[in-house]
Design a protein around this nucleic acid. Structure first.
Length: 653
RNA sequence: GCUGGCAUGGCACAGGAGGUAGCGCACUUCAUUGGUAAUGAAGAGGUCACGGGUUCGACUCCCGUUGCUAGCUCCA
């Protein structure tokens, strides 16, 4: 048989071969590095036997699937170590993930000391270098096998597999685990690993189930790579918005005010206000009109909108229906308020589309464990908007919303950092949604077409839709890799009916409009958090709370420094003077620690020539520059919202 | 909401068989008037998150609450 390798070369064999044997035949080094195989495009185990002509690619740690196998084997080693140390622990599942692997056990929570012990035991197992052997059992026998081992979770997993399936296991030494593979050949192949943390996790990801104890870990083939990763974990903590944002006095929280209720401080407000002015002006340019509607309403409104049935748990309700004549709730969204603005007068088909924008503060009663910094809060403000459109205008308007979103992302320099999602309903969970299946299929189809037409890469997520319609979610990851929705654009063909909204068409008939719910830059608090982490606090100049600091060499030049500062301020630049009686080195250090993008050093030389010595993170020490030229340059940078790229290093910070 | 961990001046941290607390930075004052990452000196600042309990005595031990945090679940 002929085996065609990745580089195009062909190997010929008389007898059947395993993937590992082929690797070994190519070179010993490759065999050592081999983690899995890719046989005719399908990922397979190293033990998989090849009987006929095929294309084969040997996967190593450098391939995603190889990395997964490597780390998955590490998770088995960890499970064996746990079973050795804590024989009563029950095994649940232990897959590889992007950053490493985890394994869930039914066991008391593990302390850091426990993890250290487990690590030590893992090292022993690796040193023992047992071979991993694969074998299969018919389903019934497999169930029996795991029942005898007293592993109820494994039994449950096998019972979910089809009746006639052959169940595969991997055995290393005395440890056997239910597993589809692929796996490394021997435990000794694991070179560097670390157990990162332990926490609770529900069995099968369902909060009605028992909570198990999860251990997260990671593994690399080289000690240096592992150390690099661990250093990276330390490093990203420094850009964590929740730490940096407080340190930079952008926001704070106070115990007695409550969870999820951050206080925006003057520096943070400057940034939010810049964002808000920019977005509102941009929306106006794009044909939006603005509303300002109440932050609360009677429960009647939410009953009409469906929120009372579908979202009451998430709302702050004021009063209760038994004791109070009127029950109010703080608004969790702006939709129905803007619908009533629409309904306040009769609309003709000529009036449409109508694009309502509102910088809207919303309240959502998140569960206590969900709050986090600025990204998950109970009160927040979004660049909310609803477009009331004729069905024939829907596609164009939806595209325009996407274009606006894209423009916002580009301006902030984050367009590379997002993923697009078509969030669909879940046909198996009808009670979460209103409307008929046909409407859902149709609207989801429209959005899919639009995304495809615009050549936007996207994934389709089942069960992520709003209760009234499918949407495009634009998500971004925080420094820890957790994903949040930054922008959402929703297609709603249903709520106009609930609110009896209509327009009069050419024939004088009343027709239901369609509605687009959308944000242009989503939630301001969340965007601020994102920017802090993206730029590690070194924001584009137009967003910096402090853009320029004038640093006189000594108090003798205070007058000139003040004059320079006044010129800057008069030109709309956020500037201040450091008139403290400190040396220039101290002032520069202090400005940098405060992340001021431009420092203007002034002394005798500068005063005589009406110049300033510019120093900035973008340019280093640029030297003397005419004051007016500097003002012109920075005004241009601010006006055009230029993003000047810099390497974010310790040095730059 | 669930399972852990944590809580000492603005920030970052020490501390102790249970006998009411320290260092650095920041802050204030004084001296210094300097050319591109820290001038020197002095001073002020804390009910050791909050509420109970044990104790002659609790920041320290126990219980509860609140907040922060790692995950899980949730996020219309």
């Amino acid at each position: 048989m002929k085996i065609t390798l990745k580089d195009g070369s062909v190997k010929e064999y008389q007898n059947e071969m395993s993937v590992y044997e082929v690797a070994l035949d190519i070179s010993e080094g490759l065999a050592r590095a081999a983690c899995a195989g890719e046989l005719n495009g399908v990922v397979v185990d190293l033990r998989t036997r090849i009987y006929s002509d095929c294309e084969l690619n040997i996967l190593t740690f450098n391939d995603d699937a190889g990395k997964a196998a490597y780390r998955h084997t590490t998770s088995h080693v960890m499970a064996e170590a746990v079973k050795r140390l804590y024989p009563d622990a029950k095994l649940a599942i232990g897959p590889s993930i992007d950053t490493g692997f985890y394994y869930d056990f039914e066991h008391e929570p593990f302390s850091r000391e426990d993890l250290d012990k487990i690590e030590a035991e893992m090292k022993k197992i690796i040193k023992e270098n047992a071979a991993l052997e694969k074998f299969t059992l018919p389903r019934e026998e497999a169930i029996k096998f795991m029942e005898e081992k007293n592993e109820p979770y494994k039994v449950e997993l096998i019972k979910d597999l089809p009746e006639d399936s052959e169940i595969s296991f991997y055995k290393q030494g005395d440890f056997t685990d239910l597993c589809a593979g692929p796996h490394l050949m021997k435990t000794g192949a694991i070179k560097a690993f670390k157990l990162i943390s332990s926490s609770g996790a529900y069995w099968r990801g369902n909060s009605d189930n028992k909570m198990l104890t999860r251990i997260y870990g990671t593994a690399y083939t080289k000690k240096e790579e592992l150390n690099e990763y661990l250093a990276y974990l330390e490093d990203i903590k420094k850009r964590d918005h929740n730490k940096l944002g407080r340190e930079m006095e952008l926001f704070t929280t106070v115990d007695v005010i409550g969870q999820g209720l951050p206080l925006l401080m003057p520096n943070g407000v400057i940034m939010l206000q810049e964002l808000q002015r920019w977005i509102e002006d941009e929306e106006t340019k794009r044909g939006y009109v603005r509303t300002k509607t109440p932050l609360m309403a009677k429960s009647d409104l939410y009953k009409l909108s469906g929120h009372w049935d579908h979202y009451k748990e998430g709302m702050f309700v004021l009063g209760d229906e038994e004791n109070d004549k009127e029950v109010f709730a703080l608004r969790p969204m702006t939709c129905p308020f803007q619908y009533y603005v629409y309904k306040a007068s009769q609309k003709s088909y000529r009036d449409l589309p109508i694009r309502y924008g509102e910088t809207s503060t919303l309240f959502r009663n998140e569960d206590s464990g969900e709050m986090h910094g600025l990204t998950r809060v109970r009160q927040f403000t979004i660049s909310e908007g609803h477009l009331i459109v004729r069905p024939d205008q829907m596609v164009k308007e939806f595209k325009d919303c996407l274009a606006l979103a894209k423009y916002c992302l580009e301006t902030l320099g984050v367009e590379e950092d997002v993923t697009y999602h078509l969030s669909k309903w879940d046909p198996d969970n009808r009670k979460k949604y209103i409307g008929e299946p046909e409407v859902w299929e149709e609207t989801e189809g429209h959005i899919r077409n639009i995304l495809q037409e615009l050549n936007i890469e996207f994934t389709e997520d089942v069960g992520e839709a709003a209760f009234y319609g499918p949407k495009v979610d634009i998500n971004a990851k925080n420094v820890y890799g957790k994903e949040d929705t930054m922008i959402t654009i929703q297609w709603d063909a249903l709520l106009a009916e609930q609110f009896d909204m209509y327009y009069v068409d050419q024939n004088g008939d009343k027709v239901r409009p369609y509605i687009i719910h959308r944000t242009s830059m989503g939630c301001y608090e969340r965007t601020l958090a994102w920017l802090i982490e993206k730029y590690a606090g070194l924001f584009p100049t137009w967003l910096c709370p402090e853009q320029v600091r004038v640093l006189p060499i000594s108090e003798k030049y205070a007058d000139y420094a003040n004059k320079v500062n006044n010129e800057l301020v008069a030109n709309g630049i956020r500037s201040s003077v450091d008139n403290r009686s400190e040396k220039i080195g101290f002032k520069i250090r202090d400005s940098r620690l405060h992340r001021v993008p431009y420092m203007l050093v002034v002394g005798q030389k500068e005063e005589e020539e009406n110049k300033v010595s510019v120093r900035s993170r973008y340019l280093g020490d640029e030297g003397a520059k005419d004051l007016n030229i500097f003002i012109g340059d920075i005004c241009k940078e601010i006006r055009t919202k230029e993003i000047r790229k810099i390497e974010v290093t310790e040095e730059a910070k």
